[in-house]
């Protein structure tokens, strides 16, 4: 249900929480506790594109951290941030199961592997 709402709105609006609670006969508190527990659920809208960069060990062994930091610096963002024009959000993800084709990332749900600093940057910059 929460996934479906996020799918629909891109995030879970605060106003939705009492509605969900009523529908499931839960308290508002419980719904809020669940939503805030899971990192997938956004409380605010994301950018038009979402780039999830893997930060787990296998990708780190292939230099992912340096690549990611370069990109973040270029965009002037921190993890979880969205560019001022609302174009793209950069999020961390811990393992996509693409550990033998590391470093990897997910752009709007599409997987990309064997990234290097340049290809990661073009991936992020070219998403329009």
């Amino acid at each position: 249900m929460l996934h479906a709402i996020q799918e629909e709105f891109g995030y879970i609006p605060r106003e939705a929480e009492p509605v969900i609670a009523e529908a499931l006969n839960l308290s508002r508190a419980e719904v809020h506790g669940v939503i805030t527990f899971y990192h997938d659920f956004r409380r605010e809208p994301a950018g038009r594109h979402v780039l999830k960069i893997c930060r787990a060990e296998a990708c780190q062994s292939m230099g992912s951290e340096a690549n990611a930091h370069r990109l973040l610096e270029r965009l002037g963002l921190d993890w979880g941030g969205t560019t001022a024009d609302g174009r793209i959000t950069i999020e961390a993800v811990y393992c996509l199961g693409l550990c033998a084709t590391a470093p990897s990332a997910l752009l709007d749900g599409e997987p990309v592997g064997r990234l290097d600093a340049a290809s990661l940057e073009s991936l992020a910059m070219e998403a329009a």
């Binding site: 839960l26 508190a29 419980e30 809020h32 805030t36």
Partner: peptide, 10 residues
């Protein structure tokens, strides 16, 4: 039995 409280975040 009111369930007014939760832990938010993790």
């Amino acid at each position: 039995g009111t369930f007014a409280l939760t832990i938010a975040g993790r």
